[in-house]
Amino acid sequence: MAERCSRFAESRDKALELFASKGFGQVGMRELAAFLGLAPGSLYHHYPSKQHLLLDLIEEFYEELLATLGRIERQPRDLRGCLQNVIHAHLNLHREMPWHFRLVERDSGCLNEDQQARVRQLQEHYERQLLMILCPTPQLSEQGLLAAGHAIASVLNNAPSWLALHPLDDWERNELLENLLSGAIERLLGHASGDLPDVQTKVA
């Protein structure tokens, strides 16, 4: 039984790579089963549709993000150090789970309405927890809270792809990303906590 579960876990990893590289909408269940070396009936036994498999992979992604934030929460509460820990953890996850990041960003809209609602619930939970770690007493409305958490999460999760086409050494890429993320997120946190005045543009 353990060997069979291990084999199916490997199949899920292969499915993730196929979806992320080729595009979820371009892969049919029969093609997926053939790629995994499974009979279609065996695949349907575990997942009644491609969408169920996609949802499982996306849930896995958010569960890992939430577990990462949970570990950071248990560390000493120094705001500057906390931000650096959050940045480093997200950059590490991007290196460890690149296919998940791509799949979530590009293919979440392929899920049905109920599944998309589940993903939004997980996303909001993660984004709210992220903001609470970085800014425990935000001076924001409920909608402002959701927007700030979403903005910070978007920057953290998308920034590594901005440099994907540039052949940089790892240390140089990491330094650029850390400086970029620190500056952007500190500015956002300043507004979220009320420490920065609103900037108003005056038209002459």
Rank of each mutant, 00 (worst) to 15 (best):
M1Y: 09
E3R: 11
E3Q: 09
R4P: 07
S6G: 02
A9K: 07
E10H: 04
R12D: 11
R12C: 05
A15E: 12
A15S: 04
L18R: 00
L18M: 02
L18I: 11
F19I: 08
S21C: 02
Q26L: 09
M29Y: 08
E31Q: 10
L32A: 06
A33F: 13
A34G: 13
L36T: 08
L36A: 07
G37D: 14
L38K: 13
A39P: 14
H45P: 12
H46Q: 04
K50V: 11
K50F: 14
K50D: 13
H52L: 07
L53S: 00
L54Y: 12
E60G: 10
E63F: 05
L66Q: 07
T68K: 12
I72Q: 00
I72V: 15
R77K: 15
D78S: 11
R80E: 12
C82P: 11
N85C: 12
N85S: 12
I87S: 06
H88P: 01
H88I: 06
H88E: 02
H90W: 15
R95G: 00
M97P: 09
W99S: 02
W99L: 00
F101P: 01
R102N: 04
L103C: 09
R106H: 03
C110M: 14
E113I: 02
Q115A: 13
A117Y: 13
R118A: 01
R120Q: 00
L122H: 08
E124P: 00
H125N: 04
Y126S: 08
R128D: 01
R128P: 01
L131T: 04
L131F: 05
M132P: 03
L134R: 03
P136N: 01
T137K: 07
L140W: 05
S141L: 05
S141G: 05
E142A: 04
G144M: 04
L145M: 06
I152L: 11
A153H: 05
S154I: 13
V155T: 10
N157I: 09
N157A: 11
N158D: 11
N158C: 13
A159D: 09
S161D: 09
W162I: 13
L168T: 10
L168P: 08
R173M: 01
N174H: 10
L176N: 09
N179H: 07
L181W: 09
L181Q: 06
G183L: 06
G183I: 06
E186N: 01
L188G: 04
L189E: 03
G190E: 01
S193T: 06
S193Y: 04
G194V: 06
D198R: 02
V203P: 04
A204G: 12
